[in-house]
Amino acid sequence: MTTTPVMQADNIVKELGSGAGLVVAVKGVSLELVPGELTLLMGPSGSGKTTLLSILGGIMKPTSGSLRIADTVIDGLSAEDLAKVRREHLGFIFQSYNLFPTLNAIENVRIALDVRGIKGFAATSRSEEVLREVGLGHRLTNYPRNLSGGEQQRVAVARAIASSPSIVLADEPTAALDSENGHAVMALLSRIAKEQHRSVLAVTHDPRTLGYADRVIRIEDGRIVGEERRPEGIDAPEITDLTKRRKLHA
């Protein structure tokens, strides 16, 4: 299946710190993301995954290299223009959920629509819809402190997809979750990629997540060192593999 990439990164380099503390966290990464796929970015701690994800999300500016998100080449855009690109094309999921503690589930989703200018009834009904989609129809008015970690992360997923972005970026979405919740969130991300035809990129070093991937990019020391793709036509061969693992973990 050939589809036009919704994101294209070319030779991204990122230097962090300065002087003696200078670290080249990303050392010339090129990659493309296409719709309908869940891609995992895996690598050891400190390999530059988060740094790369921040750059791909238009949150951090690369030291050099070029990045296109949807139709926009974002090199050299101002902070405000980058925010606009994030609003229009991207959804984010964070390791520690980053929900607003003073807002309930539905409000946490609504605020992501609000910054995009979607207000009123349209915003409420869309927020309810996506919360139901992630299986939280019965938790609409719960505050984050009254939700389990898994539920909180699902609210975050709902928030990320509420505005129907073409790309969803997640940094270690399962790291703070137990096995069962981790699987639930990964299944959700995979469904979002397939059913809603979005491009999902998740940073992880959690092997439990492997089974959900359409594609795995491996990164070490700021460089891509390998890429695997699930052969076409075969439906999630690792799922069985994974079920075994789950049993092992249990």
Partner: peptide, 16 residues
């Protein structure tokens, strides 16, 4: 501040 940073990451404008 962390919430404001999240808002910003979610794409809110400074004005918001």
């Amino acid at each position: 501040i962390h919430e404001f940073a999240t808002l910003r990451a979610l794409g809110s404008s400074r004005g918001y």
